[in-house]
């Protein structure tokens, strides 16, 4: 528990660090927001005026402090182009990314964990071979390529799923899920590959422990031994890896949102970066970082719950 409290306390300084890095990185890439906003109509006077309006003529540290100050009062700034408040943008985009990543995580878990368990229980069996193939495919095929391939097969050839685009939840859960099927499958493949390997090796390790033999000697049915005891003990490394992989999932979401034209935070950040739309990129990155940190925090809590030795207060 103490480690969780420590992590919570570290949350603010971490976000602070992220804010500095994002802020500086953005300004390191060449390109002038004012130029992008004015485009071909740009005149020196107009540019100067816009630069002043946006506060981009101020020294960097002053710009940063202003931004941060506004953040603390809940003001994430406005989109340079549309002048829409960034919070409003995030409110529509974040649910899409969340649904994409959670569906992918769910899909990966449903496929990889049972497969990894079977592979460990029957080494060299069919499940084990399937697990190796999945591991190989998932690790060697890039997300964008897999996405295109899936579109080619399941959308253009078989016509089972839409090739791109987003259907909001309000249009019915089925249509919504159908739109997410291929993107989630794309994103889930890489994670499944890692997860199936970790599950297999974690379960193999637990199966070799003494207590499993004692459980058999107690007369427990194999199913109970695997589902209750072995999985519970193997879940610690599995969940640790999920926490670590969540960062890759968010990174992958950026690419998958591009490939499938999903209006999520990832595609928002990509477009905004190209337009040097500073407030949008900065806020988007902060939200993604916060998400990552929160997931890891959740992982920590789960981890402590699953591993009694980490729980405070010996009896």
């Amino acid at each position: 528990m103490t480690s969780t409290v420590r992590r919570l306390l570290l949350l603010l300084p971490t976000l602070f660090g992220v804010s500095i890095v994002v802020f500086l990185l953005l300004r390191l890439i060449p390109g002038d927001p004012a130029q992008v906003i004015m485009g071909l109509r740009a005149t020196p006077e107009g540019l100067a005026a816009i630069t002043r309006d946006l506060g981009l003529d101020l020294p960097l540290h002053e710009q940063y402090v202003r931004w941060l100050g506004a953040l603390f009062s809940g003001d994430f700034g406005r989109d340079y182009r549309s002048n829409v408040p960034v919070t409003q943008l995030l409110a529509t985009r974040l649910p899409v990314t969340l649904e994409l990543t959670l569906l992918s995580l769910l899909l990966a878990l449903i496929v990889a964990v049972p497969l990894g368990v079977r592979a460990a229980v029957h080494p060299n069996g069919i499940a084990d071979k399937a697990a190796s193939v999945l591991g190989l495919i998932g690790i060697s095929i890039p997300d964008f390529w897999l996405g295109i391939l899936l579109v080619l097969v399941f959308s253009l050839t078989l016509g089972m799923f839409p090739s791109s685009g987003f259907v909001p939840f309000s249009d019915g859960i089925f249509a919504n899920l159908r739109a997410f099927a291929l993107p989630a499958l794309t994103l889930a493949t890489g994670l499944s590959a890692v997860l199936v390997r970790v599950t297999r090796s974690a379960v193999t390790e637990v199966l070799s422990r003494d207590f499993v033999r004692f459980l058999k000697a107690k007369g427990l049915p194999p199913r109970a031994i695997i589902n209750r005891h072995v999985l519970r003990n193997a879940s610690v490394p599995i969940i640790t890896v999920i926490g670590m992989q969540f960062g890759y999932l968010l990174g992958g979401a950026v690419i998958v949102e591009q490939v499938f034209d999903l209006p999520g935070v990832g595609s928002l950040i990509v477009t905004a970066t190209m337009e040097r739309n500073y407030p949008v990129v900065q806020a988007g990155m902060l939200v993604v970082a916060l998400l990552f940190i929160l997931v890891n925090l959740g992982t920590d809590l789960l981890y402590a719950w699953l591993n009694p030795r980490l729980r405070g207060g010996a009896r």
Partner: peptide, 13 residues
């Protein structure tokens, strides 16, 4: 049945 090593015979979780 009982085993030799009591430290590892029980499920730690």
């Amino acid at each position: 049945m009982m085993f030799q090593n009591p430290m590892t015979a029980l499920d730690p979780a």
